[in-house]
Amino acid sequence: MKLTIKKWVTIGVSLLLAGTAVYFLIKIQPPISFYITFTWILLIASLLWIGSTLISRFLDKKLPWKEYVTARFFIQLGLTIIYSLFCVNTSYFLLKKLFTNDPPVWEQVLLTNIYGLLLILPTFSIYFGIHFLKAWKKSQLETERLQKEGMRSQLQALRNHLDPHFLFNNLNILSILIDKDQALSKQYLERFAEVYRIILQNEVSELITLKKELDFIKSYLYLIKIRFQDDINVDLNIEAHLKMKMVPPLSIQMLIENCIKHNAITETSPLAINIFTEDDEYLVVKNNLKPKKTGGNGKSSGLENIRNRYRYFTDKNLIIEQSTTHFIIKIPLLEIEEL
């Protein structure tokens, strides 16, 4: 067994204390009563430690702290006092009988019980305090673990919502293109497979760099251009030093999809989407506002999805601004040290 520095220090201190005790005992040469008293104290301490541990383990099964805090405290206190006084009195009578010829003195018995209580109560308080702190720390760690597991489950559910939504939209587009232009539909299918491969690569990622998200967006925009031709214009203007900041996967794609979903797109009035950064803290998606006559005022599940995912990583929220001519959404750019 390899000894750590902490164990070596413990062994060293123990040997030092033992050597000091032996030295003083040789020097002082105490009477036999000293050794009897010392043995009695050592016996009592050992019995109290063993008994308290057994009582605590027994009550852990019958009265867990989480469910019976008050009852557990008083029952354990009562049992510990009864057991401790039993040990004190039993050991007193045994030592009297085995090592002396004197009968028990009831005044000594009374004082022994009083001193025992005075020793037991603070000892129990210290023991309870240490036990409570350990239990509280364990409970906190367990709570944090469950929260993280819950967070991961919810994030996974949100990510699972993205893939089918994206898949069905593009399959619908593909089915339309097959009837119009088989060569173009084949090209679209190849690009769609490439885009979906990127989605699968980031399936387990809770956050990705802005650079990776933009690489995906460039491939995704190719699909958009095939479908809408010049009816949609997307301008990307992202500063290079911000590309290592983090965003939830597919967040920009969902914002672009949100623009397409809620706006009328025609050849005479194309949809213009500008994607840029603001104050090095937000990524902005801005589009000219041309709401559809029907279905344009409904609640966006895409925006709600992005908002929910951000809640797990930052207190910053999405910023939504709308004027008579433009609709703007700003999402926070995250850094590793913020998480």
Rank of each mutant, 00 (worst) to 15 (best):
K148C: 08
R311N: 10
N172Q: 08
Y35H: 02
S323D: 11
S84G: 15
K211F: 08
I11H: 15
K316D: 10
N170Y: 02
F327Q: 00
L121D: 00
L47T: 05
E67S: 14
D315Q: 12
E206C: 06
Q140D: 10
I226D: 02
M254G: 01
I329M: 06
K261R: 11
P164R: 13
I208N: 03
S139V: 04
G129C: 09
S33T: 10
G19V: 03
K261C: 03
T209F: 05
K330W: 01
Q108L: 11
K138P: 00
K62H: 12
K61R: 15
I114V: 13
V105Q: 11
L141G: 11
V88F: 12
N101H: 13
N101W: 03
S84P: 04
L184T: 11
G150L: 10
E142T: 13
E239Q: 15
C87N: 08
I232D: 02
K137Q: 13
I198H: 10
L289W: 15
V285W: 00
D215C: 07
N258P: 02
K299N: 09
P30D: 06
F24Q: 13
I32K: 15
L221C: 11
I50M: 08
H326W: 01
I81V: 10
I26R: 14
V69D: 09
E194T: 06
A264M: 11
G150M: 09
T20P: 04
F73Q: 04
D235A: 08
K292T: 09
V204G: 09
L95G: 14
F93T: 08
L54M: 14
N317H: 10
I265K: 00
R227P: 03
L121G: 00
L171I: 13
D231M: 11
I173F: 08
I208C: 04
L271G: 01
T90R: 04
I306N: 02
G19A: 10
L110A: 11
A193I: 08
T268H: 12
E278I: 08
I26Q: 14
F313R: 04
L85P: 01
K225L: 05
V285D: 04
L242M: 05
Q187K: 12
T20F: 15
L79D: 02
L54D: 07
V13F: 13
W65C: 01
K2Y: 14
Y222K: 13
T294Q: 13
P270T: 05
I55F: 04
K62L: 09
